[in-house]
């Protein structure tokens, strides 16, 4: 299939960016979107042009490194997958594909389609952990945990930290990301010990970094490659409320 790619090029964080158009031919329907980008970059390099910078690593939908806002949607026109799992059969011959970086103040552009998501690490560092040191912990079966809670915690823990929630949200809010981590620990007895401090610190850090406010549009849930539920946001709101009134 042949495509017309409209790709955002920006040389650095403060540079002015613009769309550049690249026609590309003979792409197999069975190739993945990033393999299509590889082909483009191979062609650019052969012509002596600078390849398009974009983040990617595991290429199996788990590391959370790949991003891209494709035709108006984070991770492109398919549900519950990352860009690296997107396949070209989701596009039709002759289509114009617009590719932008994720845009949010806390995710500054590094180059082209690559953004800096260290804001997420900062939020985790603020409280996204259980304060236990190595060694000196009880036997794993010493604390029985209801299966339903363990499963819900796993649902929340499935977050890959890709930032699609922020990218999709019209407010660039990070609530789904933050609430997923808060929920995981809130649901488990190990995490309950520090539940109050955790939710307060993580929300404060999120606000401090400059993410937007949640207005319950649920675009985050619709675009999350791991289908993390907005029920986690509600749980975090409860946790926050409980922390503030206690």
């Amino acid at each position: 299939m042949d495509l017309k790619l409209k790709i955002w090029r920006q040389s650095g964080p403060d540079a002015k960016g613009e769309f550049k158009e690249y026609p590309i031919q003979d792409i197999s329907k069975d190739s993945s979107f990033l393999e299509m980008m590889d082909v483009l970059n191979e062609q650019l390099v052969s012509k002596g042009e600078e390849p398009v910078a974009f983040d990617h690593d595991c290429r199996e939908g788990i590391c959370g490194m790949c991003s891209l806002f494709i035709n108006g949607r984070p991770h492109g026109p398919d549900d519950a997958i990352t860009t690296c799992q997107l396949h070209m059969r989701k596009f039709h011959d002759g289509e114009t594909v617009t590719i932008e970086p994720w845009r949010a103040k806390p995710f500054p552009i590094i180059k082209d389609l690559m953004v800096d998501r260290s804001a997420f690490d900062e939020i985790i560092q603020a409280g996204g952990f259980v304060s236990v040191s190595t060694g000196g912990v009880p036997d794993a079966n010493a604390i029985p945990i209801k299966k339903v809670n363990a499963d819900l915690a796993m649902d929340a823990a499935a977050c890959i930290g890709c930032g699609a929630c922020v990218a999709a949200c019209k407010n660039a809010s990070a609530m789904l990301f933050v609430s997923a981590k808060v929920s995981q620990f809130a649901l488990l007895p190990q995490g309950r010990v520090e539940a109050k401090e955790r939710v307060e610190k993580m929300v404060a850090k999120m606000d401090d970094i400059g993410f937007g406010n949640c207005t319950n549009t649920y675009a985050c849930e619709a675009e999350c490659p791991k289908e993390i539920s907005v029920a986690n946001i509600a749980r975090m709101n409860r946790e926050f409320f409980a922390a503030k009134v206690s």
Binding site: N71, G72, A168, A219
Partner: peptide
């Protein structure tokens, strides 16, 4: 975004 966002939402 330059291209209109088209995520499903409320």
């Amino acid at each position: 975004y330059k291209k209109k966002a088209s995520s499903e939402q409320s």
